[in-house]
Design a protein around this nucleic acid. Structure first.
Lengths: 132, 132
DNA sequence: GCTTGACTTCGAGTGCACTCGAAGAGGCAA
DNA sequence: TTGCCTCTTCGAGTGCACTCGAAGTCAAGC
């Protein structure tokens, strides 16, 4: 049995497509996985761990550019540990604020649902005279 | 004094640009505000309320297409109240799930920050051999 | 009277993050 | 051997949500 996962398996494990995996590699967001004797990519657990991390960062709204910056710091070695920490902490704060904002907006939507649909035909404008 | 706000004032009140306001009007997402004697848009409180609602929906991730659908239902009148409610409730569920997902991801990032930066030089892969 | 600034319409351009298609090679099952 | 599937690289295309620029109008202030 050959070590590691092929690109399709890796992709489905992580929840991306093979196209996206190659794209990430191309832009330097993911390192090059080792190749098998046939020259094909063989994703190791380490590769998958990294991919899992960046999909988390991605799904919490970090941009590709910022993730690339992080990856760059990683490549530069242990000297950049402080900067990496700052980057992650600052992102954590952004996520926290985002959650708080979503919760506020959710409350507004909840109120909207209750108020508007409880009272029949309470009028709110979309445009000139139209009822919400 | 003239009734209502000009487009620039309305835009800055809501936190959008005049360009975006016209864009929303063009695609039917916002109704046409009344015009002043000079033919210019005069945004009423009703117009602003609608804009406030859709910016909430927008910031919670509702797509332009779905908001247009909602606006369309509103224009169709009171018969569509049930469908509107469903739309809003289903969006509320999406937002709740999104918050839960963000909280899970946040926990992962927190763990990452603590674990990696507490222990010095713990190795995690980005690519082949590179340290995280 | 002339400048300034906000407004009008229209269509075209931008940036992000993919996403896909083309063209070709390798390996395996029937 | 034939077909089929997955892989490879490369560049080009897509979809979303704006975002902008051009060219022109109009009212108010100096």
């Amino acid at each position: 049995m050959i070590e590691g996962l092929g690109i399709a398996e890796a992709a489905s494990t992580i929840g991306l497509t093979a196209h996206t995996l190659r794209y990430y590699e191309r832009i330097g967001l993911a390192g090059e996985p080792p190749r098998g004797p046939d020259g094909r990519r063989r994703y190791t657990e380490q590769n998958l761990d990294w991919l899992r991390l960046i999909t988390r960062l991605r799904s919490t709204g970090m941009s590709i550019a910022e993730m690339c910056r992080y990856a760059e710091l990683v490549r530069e070695g242990p000297d950049t540990v402080g900067e990496r920490r700052e980057l992650l902490e600052s992102h954590r704060d952004v996520v926290r604020q985002r959650i708080a904002e979503l919760q506020r907006d959710l409350a507004v939507i909840d109120t909207k649902i209750e108020k508007y649909f409880a009272t029949e035909h309470s009028a709110v404008a979309i445009g000139t005279g139209a009822i919400e």
